[in-house]
Design a protein around this nucleic acid. Structure first.
Length: 571
RNA sequence: UGGGGUGUCGUCUAACGGUAGGACAACGGACUUUGAAUCCGUUUAUUGAGGUUCGAAUCCUUGCACCCCAGCCA
């Protein structure tokens, strides 16, 4: 899990450019999201790459919103994206907007028109699509392709001035209708849209397309190395074509393409994520089941773990799906170091220590004849907050004669190799005493509702003076002191698929949105948990305290064992 | 169908003509106040076939597989 950029072909290219002086040593990148949704784990790779390259070579990286489509974009997304990038630990040199370049782009388009390199097409979308031809089939030139620059200029200005209806005309680049690359068959540069733009309002009725806006925005800003995902490889020639026909204020930027980050069991399509919200399957973009950065954050993923994961993934051109275990491994590694240990019992079972002392000198068993809720003398144990990190200090954990233990930590009929509690067996209650089960109380249905035990008073702290060993240490919560908490467990990390659609990965289609909520007992210290705090429940996993809601915890990741069990259950 | 991109342990990822390395997973052992964590160790890979070379994952030829491109989305 060491950070490395050894195999980064983009870094190699930057080194080569620096060696030849192409950009006079300048390195500038940008992260260019469209503000039409929330950032997800997949974006983290791009962010890491964009900011990483700049940082590695002493350059700058800007955040630029590719806000060229008024119909889908909103300030809500702009704000969330800014926030997420900061949370991930990156600082854009500037926050820029493609919409700030609308005028510059317009002027450049006029220049192209004047030079006979762009034209206004009056045909409808379908006609243009048919004329574009197909793979291996030639395209047909538009009858409007050879209008004079003067006519085009006039039409273009009237488009801008709102003299035509939405969709009535487009501006297209005059490239090559016979090109093998479909993107070169006279791509659309401007369309007429009367949508309300989140920044420019109703100032414009024509909007540049991605192809016309992106490379030119890069050029206007002085970007040197422009990274995007693999599906834009076919746009590379067009990116260059536009820039080659324009007067640029800086040296011409270069486009580099790398593979998207895909994860098993994880949907990253914005369309589908939005549908999950609209269908009410999740509560919003920050639902802890969502693969959004906000969802992960709420779930307790440390930003540093996501960064380390991305560094391990690297930047490459191979389409691949990373396993969720890999991401989780980075999360566990991080959390194991920093998360404080707390005791929480997910499925509580009462353990009564019959020989526990009471204030009046009787045993608890005797006192309980009068008051079944009696717990006897309270005692406090000092427990390390994080055995991995002694600087985290210790805390006092209360203990008395009635405590909660994990249901699965007791077996009436112990299966082979069962190391935990059963009648006649002795175990350690962590930090407290050695106890031996003596019997059980059952309800009418035969279910064990109470386990009785005796403790060894000489084993305070958990060790017997005679040095005898026990095979198991168990976590516990004092019944009289413990707090009620709601713990939310998810079957997979993220919501997986929208019902009715499959990805071909059998796990993706399984029990997609199950959410188990359990009523847990937790130690009093957790009453102080702040939203976002992540703690480890011993032998169970990591849990994040939810925002706004007291005593609600989301499972961040399980321990390794827990994950293996989930997978087995899924299979 | 034309063009483009990509193929390395089970899954990811390194190597840039010179020992196929790392992570995750798996398996074994040690240790342990949670069967966790920690520590130590082990297994498994160059898409097929040819060629060049003292030497090929890397260069050449040729198959095969997967992905992307015919939005007025990005």
């Amino acid at each position: 899990m060491t950070e490395t950029t050894a195999g980064d072909f983009i870094a190699d290219a930057v080194r080569a450019d620096n060696a030849t002086g192409t950009y006079k040593g300048r390195v500038q990148t940008r992260f260019p999201p469209e503000p039409n949704g929330y950032l997800h784990i997949g974006h983290a790779k791009a962010i890491t790459a964009d900011f990483g390259i700049a940082e590695q070579f002493g350059g700058v990286c800007n955040l630029r919103f590719d806000d060229t489509n008024p119909d889908t974009e909103d300030v809500e997304y702009v704000e969330a994206i800014i926030d997420d990038i900061a949370w991930l630990g990156f600082s854009p040199a500037k926050v820029l907007y493609a919409s700030d370049y609308f005028q510059a782009l317009y002027d450049w388009a006029e220049a192209l028109i004047v030079n006979g390199l762009a034209y206004v097409d009056d045909q409808d979308q379908e006609t243009i699509s048919v004329q574009r031809g197909g793979y291996g089939k030639p395209g047909v030139e538009s009858p409007y392709r050879n209008r004079t620059p003067e006519e085009n200029l006039d039409l273009f200005r009237r488009m801008r001035d709102g003299q035509f209806a939405d969709g009535e005309k487009v501006v297209r680049a005059k490239v090559d209708m016979q090109s093998d690359n479909m993107q070169m068959r006279d791509p659309v540069m401007y369309r007429i849209r009367r949508g309300h733009h989140h920044r420019t309002g109703d100032q414009w009725v024509i909007y540049p397309t991605y192809d016309w806006a992106h490379g030119q925005s890069d050029a206007l800003e002085g970007v040197t190395h422009s990274m995007c995902t693999l599906e834009f490889v076919s746009h590379h020639d067009l990116y260059d074509w536009f820039l080659n026909h324009l007067e640029l204020p800086y040296d011409k930027p270069q486009q580099f393409e790398f593979a998207r980050l895909e994860l098993t069991h994880t949907v990253t399509s914005k369309r589908k994520l939005r549908q999950l919200i609209e269908d009410g399957i999740v509560t919003g973009w920050d639902d802890p089941r969502m693969p959004t950065l906000q969802g992960l954050r709420r779930r307790g993923y440390p930003a540093s773990a996501i960064r380390a994961f991305c560094a391990n993934v690297g930047v490459n051109k191979t389409n691949s799906r990373h396993s969720l275990e890999e991401l989780e491994a980075f999360v566990r590694t991080d959390l194991n170091r920093v998360a404080q240990r707390r005791m929480g019992v997910l499925h509580p079972l009462k353990l009564v220590i019959d020989n526990w002392p009471t204030e009046d000198g009787r045993t608890l068993a005797e006192a309980r004849q009068e008051n079944p809720d009696a717990v006897g003398v309270a005692q406090f144990f000092e427990v390390a907050n994080n055995p991995e990190n002694s600087e985290d200090g210790t805390r006092q954990v209360p203990f008395a004669g009635q405590i909660w233990i994990e249901e699965e930590d007791f077996a009436e009929v112990p299966p082979p190799k069962f190391f935990r509690l059963s009648v006649g067996k002795e175990v350690r209650l962590r930090g407290a005493y050695l106890v031996t089960a003596t019997g059980v109380v059952k309800d009418e249905s035969g279910r064990v509702v109470e386990v009785h035990a005796t403790y060894d008073p000489a084993s305070q702290g958990g060790n017997a003076p005679d040095g005898r060993k026990v095979k198991s240490t168990m976590h516990w919560v004092s019944a009289a002191h413990g707090l009620d908490a709601e713990v939310r467990l998810y079957d997979h990390l993220f919501a997986t698929e929208i019902p009715g659609e499959t990805t071909g990965d059998p796990l993706d289609d399984l029990n997609p949105h199950s959410l188990d909520i359990v009523s847990a007992k937790v130690e009093p210290e957790l009453g102080k948990a702040r939203p976002g705090d992540v703690v480890q429940f011993e032998r169970v996993g990591y849990f994040a305290a939810d925002k706004d809601v007291p005593m609600v915890f989301h499972r961040t990741v399980g321990l390794k064992d827990e994950w293996a069990a989930l997978q087995k259950r899924a299979a």
